[in-house]
């Protein structure tokens, strides 16, 4: 059971927005019901309920890998900050990840950077959702 392969296969399979959206729905529903590490079938193929960032953290725990993921997390957080939707705890996670790198705990650094990057990605998603849907909350 190779997680990397499953995930790559999943994403290659999303040729249109509609398909991507329905994959996203299937993914979220399965993650919501079973947590991580669950295998589900979507359009005849098998996938796991692992976040993109969790896959990125499941690499060899080296300094180079930790630094690379931390850089990606920082870039993602800069992107969400630009939109005005940065979350409160993300910069703290980035700092903790740097500290873990300095202390040689690369797995911890990878995990923290993964969480920070996930938070930033969700913030971006939240921004786009708000742009399209904020009006639903207004009393008429």
């Amino acid at each position: 059971m190779n997680k990397g392969l499953i995930i790559a296969a999943v994403l290659a399979l999303a040729p249109t927005f509609a398909a991507a959206e329905s994959f996203q729905n299937a993914f979220e529903m399965n993650r919501a019901m079973y947590g991580k590490g669950h295998v589900f079938t979507w359009q005849g193929k098998q996938y796991t309920t692992q976040h993109e960032e969790e896959a990125e953290a499941a690499v060899k725990a080296t300094k180079a890998n930790a630094e690379a993921l931390l850089d990606k997390a920082k870039a993602k957080n800069a992107e969400v900050a630009e939109l005005g939707y940065e979350w409160k705890l993300t910069r703290g996670l980035l700092k903790e990840a740097q500290t873990a790198i300095d202390e040689g705990d690369y797995q911890k650094a990878l995990n923290l950077a993964a969480q920070a990057k996930y938070h930033a990605r969700m913030g971006i998603q939240q921004y786009h959702y708000a742009q399209a849907n904020w009006h639903l909350a207004v009393p008429q």
Partner: peptide, 13 residues
């Protein structure tokens, strides 16, 4: 894929 979502969301506006 992530970019795809962003664009899809943007078109909803």
């Amino acid at each position: 894929l992530a970019l795809g979502f962003a664009v899809a969301a943007a078109t909803h506006i």
